[in-house]
Design a protein around this nucleic acid. Structure first.
Length: 221
DNA sequence: GACCAGGCACATC
DNA sequence: GATGTGCATGGT
């Protein structure tokens, strides 16, 4: 299993190069982006983050001071703005009350405990929590998503209906707990997902074709 | 106009 | 435990 995962990693890296994730300037921006990007394209998230930046609200206290409607209006381009305004506030309140307002210090605490605490915040699921821990906190936890399930299941490495924790364990049980590796591997899986679903379901001539012969958004028959 | 995008909570069976 | 639904904008 380790060798198969690393071969996929090597192929993707050779094809697309390092992805330099997460696209955000500060840990706080990364954490906010992790919520905003839930089921949403990154381009729309960027608009929302630009709005927050432009309004001088991209920091814990200034964002926490916003009324629901004000926050929702700023993040509108990211979609689900009422839901996400609530989820962001839940995260901010948690960081303020449990984390003492110090995001980086908070994320540096015991990994299993921090993960469990963050999963207890309403609106933060496993992908969002692992993204915050890995990309904002530089902690070794693997991030999985819909692309990951497609990649694994189409290579017979997991069931098509595999749960999140099952996929995460698959990576973490077979790969070293290496932040740089986890960072790049997840980013490359997403990058490969874009590449394959945009042009054509069957990616002819792709450097990954022998490893990833079929990708389309809907499982190919 | 249909389909998709770096999910998640909640209701229901 | 599995399955269905609401949430919403913007690109292709």
């Amino acid at each position: 299993m380790r060798d198969r995962l690393l071969e996929i990693y090597d192929r993707m890296l050779a094809a697309f190069g390092p992805q330099y994730w997460w696209p955000g300037d500060t840990p706080f921006e990364v954490a906010v982006g992790a919520v905003l990007t839930q089921n949403t394209s990154w381009r729309n998230v960027e608009r929302a983050i630009d709005n927050l930046k432009g309004a001088g609200r991209l920091a814990l206290a200034p964002m926490l001071a916003l009324a629901h409607d004000e926050l929702a209006a700023l993040i509108r381009p990211a979609g689900y703005f009422n839901v996400k305004a609530r989820r962001l506030r839940n995260l901010l309140v948690h960081l303020h009350e449990v984390g003492g307002g110090d995001l980086e210090g908070y994320l540096a605490g015991d990994l299993a405990i921090r993960r469990r605490e963050l999963l207890g915040v309403n609106g933060l699921g496993p992908e969002t929590v692992d993204s915050i821990l890995l990309y904002a906190g530089n902690r070794p936890t693997f991030v999985c998503d819909a692309y990951t399930r497609r990649l694994l299941s189409r290579h017979g490495l997991c069931r098509p209906a595999a749960g999140y924790e099952e996929m995460r364990a698959l990576f973490m049980d077979h790969l070293p707990a290496d932040v740089a590796l986890y960072n790049e591997l997840h980013a490359l899986i997403v990058r490969t997902g874009y590449h394959h679903c945009k042009p054509t379901p069957r990616c002819e001539g792709c450097p990954l074709a022998s490893l990833l012969p079929v990708w389309g958004a809907k499982p190919a028959v």
